[in-house]
Amino acid sequence: MQVQEILRTNSIANKFISQLRDVNIQKDRMRFRRNIERLGEIMSYELSKELNYQDNKVQTPLGESTISNPTNEVVICSILRAGLPLHQGILNYFDDAENSFISAYRHHPNNDEKFEILVEYLASPSLEGKTLILADPMLATGRSFCNVLKALETMGKPAKIHLVSVIGSLEGIEYLKKEFPENSKLWIATIDKELDSNGYIVPGLGDAGDLCYGGKMQH
């Protein structure tokens, strides 16, 4: 699996990541969601450079223009619920894509630090021969992405898989490299070095789902 880290080159994406991490700006949920959406747009632009293109003729009021347009059949799959604003950012650029939604959450059966990733809901079109974009803003252990990929196997085999994330850990990325096909690619804004004992990214930004949509009751 290839990895493309956006913040290796300075750009306006730095500002959006800075605001996402800032504990004071985080209190503005609308801005938090919008910054994730913006990063989804930035990474979609970069990702679009690797699609297949075909020349098309366009009639203008004054003549004819030839321009290459993407030919890939794209399916965007976001992991609920934190993936929704990232999904929207990607959809803003791939506006004719099909859409898939799946739930994946941490379940602590013994109410301690140990957890398992449960997938309980899936709505998806066929993925056979298509370009699959998996979206989840936080890549901690990597297990959510892997469990989602396994759950999607019944929907067909995509021709290419792209993963889009905002912040990830080195440990989680190394795990994905072992589990995902070699020709898949991860597009990520920035990478942090550590996970804490609870499997959260450090320094990270906290719980992206809660910061987007408010706290949740545990069950």
Rank of each mutant, 00 (worst) to 15 (best):
H108N: 13
D96Y: 13
Y105E: 06
L118Q: 13
Y93T: 08
Y93H: 14
I117C: 01
N110C: 12
V75R: 04
S124A: 10
S78C: 11
E98N: 10
L84P: 00
P85G: 06
R106T: 00
C77Y: 05
E128I: 02
A104W: 02
A123H: 13
K114T: 14
A104E: 04
R106D: 01
D112L: 11
N99C: 12
P125I: 05
Y105I: 02
L127C: 09
G89E: 12
P109L: 10
L91K: 08
D96W: 08
E120A: 10
D112I: 08
L122K: 13
N111H: 14
F101H: 10
R81T: 00
L80P: 01
K114A: 12
P109H: 06
A82L: 00
P125E: 07
V75C: 03
Y93S: 07
N92Q: 13
P109I: 15
L127F: 06
E98H: 07
E116S: 13
P109D: 07
Q88R: 15
Y121I: 06
E113M: 10
I102W: 03
I79H: 00
L91A: 11
F101P: 09
F115S: 13
F101S: 10
E128T: 11
G89T: 11
D95R: 08
L86M: 11
E116N: 12
H107G: 08
V75Q: 08
